[in-house]
Design a protein around this nucleic acid. Sequence first.
DNA 1: CATATGTCCTGAGAGC
DNA 2: TGCTCTCAGGACATAT
Length: 276
Amino acid sequence: MPELPEVETMCRGLHPIVGKKIQSVSTPPCDYRPIQIRPSIAKIDEQLRGSVVTEVSRIGKRVVIHANQFALILQPKMTGLVALDEPPDPEHVRLQVTFNGRPKQLVQFWDRRGLGTVEMLRADQLQARIIDGKLGPDALQITPADFVQRLKATGRPIKVALLDQKIVAGIGNLYASEMLHLAGINPRKAASKLSNQKLTELHTQMLLVLNLAILHEGSTLSDGTYRNALNNPGNFQNMHLVYDRAGEDCLTCHQAKIRRIVQAQRSTFFCPRCQK
DNA sequence: CATATGTCCTGAGAGC
DNA sequence: TGCTCTCAGGACATAT
């Protein structure tokens, strides 16, 4: 599940295409229901063909390829990824961007479940269409004070609040559990009832776990879908303290077992002893 | 406005 | 072994 560290890793892996000229943008034949692409692939190809990639950036959990004053926005959602090399399998390639030059370079948007989307906007529309009203400050950029203030403003359980991209952008189900464990916070606690000190600690641990995960190129889970741009798995899955470890010993206190609960229809993992 | 729920999709794994 | 069922969850649409 691509969250901030996985999407950041994808973006960094795409760096070799910066400065390259786009030869074409196309959708290869695919046996599955087509993903959402807007405007049409023909219009996207028309605008981007022949233009040079100036930047690859990340907005929350989206990958943005900039070229010709346009932004091509790839949203992996659950099982999508962006690959420079071969994707996990050839069956679920949803979009291809080919570049001029030898050897010919190719960026492929691959998505097994097809929940991902592709959107092209004028670069000057990015703020209004993607960020305003939809995304809070990025998890790697938000100040501790802003982080605390935004979480204090909701009575929802802290775990649920962390998943709300309007509060802070980039956190997903896996890292939400991990950072709450590191900060010693019970995921069911109302965000508004946490002390400033606890929330500040959470901010610290959030940065720690996200940056550490980026360093290890993200987490490749048992479904094996997430890979970095060169089709190698991440390494951070081996360092999870709570995620998907229900019934196993807590690696922090060694005196309790990790529990799984469901919040907002999503799994949450925590140690009942460390996170009271 | 804030919050809650339903929906999309495919494949892995469980259970019989 | 092969079938059916459940589950995984990001983001958006719709409901409360």
